[in-house]
Design a protein around this nucleic acid. Sequence first.
DNA 1: AATGAATGAGGATTCATTCAT
DNA 2: AATGAATGAATCCTCATTCAT
Lengths: 214, 214, 214, 214
Amino acid sequence: MSSSPQTKSVPRKRSNGIAAREKILDAAARIASERGYEGTSISVVSKRSGFPASSIYWHFKNKDDLIAAVIERSFAAWLQALTDLQPPGEDATLEEKVTHQAAQFSHAIEVSPDFLRLGLMLGLEHRPEDPTARKMFLKVRSRAFRNAVKSFAEWLPDFDRGALEELASFTVALADGFFMSQQVADATHDLMGRVDMQAAAILGVVELLRQKRG
Amino acid sequence: MSSSPQTKSVPRKRSNGIAAREKILDAAARIASERGYEGTSISVVSKRSGFPASSIYWHFKNKDDLIAAVIERSFAAWLQALTDLQPPGEDATLEEKVTHQAAQFSHAIEVSPDFLRLGLMLGLEHRPEDPTARKMFLKVRSRAFRNAVKSFAEWLPDFDRGALEELASFTVALADGFFMSQQVADATHDLMGRVDMQAAAILGVVELLRQKRG
Amino acid sequence: MSSSPQTKSVPRKRSNGIAAREKILDAAARIASERGYEGTSISVVSKRSGFPASSIYWHFKNKDDLIAAVIERSFAAWLQALTDLQPPGEDATLEEKVTHQAAQFSHAIEVSPDFLRLGLMLGLEHRPEDPTARKMFLKVRSRAFRNAVKSFAEWLPDFDRGALEELASFTVALADGFFMSQQVADATHDLMGRVDMQAAAILGVVELLRQKRG
Amino acid sequence: MSSSPQTKSVPRKRSNGIAAREKILDAAARIASERGYEGTSISVVSKRSGFPASSIYWHFKNKDDLIAAVIERSFAAWLQALTDLQPPGEDATLEEKVTHQAAQFSHAIEVSPDFLRLGLMLGLEHRPEDPTARKMFLKVRSRAFRNAVKSFAEWLPDFDRGALEELASFTVALADGFFMSQQVADATHDLMGRVDMQAAAILGVVELLRQKRG
DNA sequence: AATGAATGAGGATTCATTCAT
DNA sequence: AATGAATGAATCCTCATTCAT
């Protein structure tokens, strides 16, 4: 810097904690959603992120903490995607509202599939010592469930709490199933895009619940 | 490691081969469905089954082979459960048939959940080197898909191939989703038992497809 | 072997578990007594013993277990050395008996100093999570203490339990101190050999206790 | 590591340098006397003292230097404790003088046991690369030895140099032994307090040496 | 039909230390 | 006067697998 005035003090790459942390999270997210919890070895994350393993431990307490951070961050992205779409108009029909909701879910999943992928992987595991990452996914997911209940409560004022919760559970399960099918990819048909099918299914269930009540 | 010097090795009775193999598979199945592919280490299987690691290698070529065997065996159990129920009568209504099918699925899953659990875990993973276990699950699963297509073809003679496949995909996705919900267990409601909801959803979709065609 | 009858089936070095275990213990004992618990890294033991680290873990559960085994084994050697000497004659004077005992201790320490060295190192440490090795040393040591009490009880029938225990504690402390001095080696004089000094000190204390009682 | 991103770093007040140094030494002393040289990792000292590792390096050249400083400081405390007591009167009997000396030692050890504890730990280790800390302890200790020789020379003018040194060695060894016993704590009796036993032992040895000479 | 012993590769994590700020 | 960030080397230990018996 002292040598010449025009030396444009190169943007020092050194010691930018946040950026490094982000790069590590990027690598970890990609790997974790490919290989699950056990498969995400620190050494692979190290290789993919370009940081030595010991640097990863500067930013994260341990592997568990790292993966929990991945879940947390990808959930934020997911939430963002979920709110990017406008809510359906007040005077829309139930069918329109439900379709809109399904579209939102599909969109969110398409935009940040890592969240659900890794989350479901963790969800399927039932090991004695539950990693914090799993707990974090569960927490986040139950929030999504409560949101769905609230929406349905607005749209179906005549439904009681029990029915609303059943409907919400069904909706979430449906989204999970569509996602799973896409991931496992044994279907020739890309279900994720079939927003209308999701809506039709939900309406079918609404009908069922209404009959039972009546 | 189970027979390492520290573990006082009980003089093992020259047990017959098949029983040993079965015990190993039992242990492996339990562990794999708890912890997934990577989490199923030979040494844990050894500890849980009571056989030294080297004995496991006497019965199975390698880890991959062991887990493939687990999948294979649990698929057999699943198939058995699936055929225990009688097919619906010829003259049943569509609703009855669909409900019956859903009940069959629910039953099969309840009877041997390990198959689906481990299978979905493997399905979610997308690693470069695909373990045989994963391929085996995919094969088995696509057979289930084709069966569903065949059933629907009988029940809905007016549907074309494309519609039938969409319907089958949907059915499978729905079952997956219900299973996931039960596993993740964030729902207050046990969806697996809600055969009527599954049927209602499918009928809703049938209706949709029928409209589109018309 | 099939090629020629005279091939003297070379003494197979392979798979001789006990011998390997012993070699590992030898290496570990040497290192541990040089560098203490923390300083005894598995990788050094591996290098010194010629076995890869993973082989060490076949024979010992973990580092703690290994060092506990070292203590255990070297205690056996020590006990052996302690009993190699004949007990003093029944009709010997107290001075002769005490001198004999001191000689025994000195001898035992000289023959297998590793036991005391490592033991005292562990004894000095007071970390929260007490390694089993330390506990083992303490156990072994309290046995030595009880033996001393028994000896003194025979030689000094007029002493009460309290006095006997004080005397035994003193004797042990004295031996420790002499050993320490030799190890730290700041003294120009090799105390270990001065059996007569140890005896004189003990007799001085016997006298003191006798006065207090009288 | 104490200030890693996970640990929410409380905005540290620009504390004055000496106080920080002292706090680090406090932490290091406690840890070193619990776990010895190897066990005293910079990161533990950092956690316990509340200062980031890099700050420790600002105050001390390296780990070795830090522990040497610990020894140095605790030696000062020890020396202080040693001189707090007045010397015995000129016209006291030998027994009184020796008892007084023993009391002094006991007191000093009780007041600052860390010095001896850590010192003996280092003394027991015989590793190739001798840490400065060990050398410092040895130096300090040999000074104590020379002091003892000088005292005895005054009290026992008829003893030759050799005898005086043997006596001093014995005294030091005895103190070590008593300390060890207390640390290892296998004795039911708290020997440290038994100043009279130490004195009696020394007098016993004085007697022995006198006989040999005579 | 089985297993005790061994092993190289890799797992997570901590180490002492540095350096730009 | 201090520290956030980084790092290579070392830590303990587990992995999947082999092989002689």
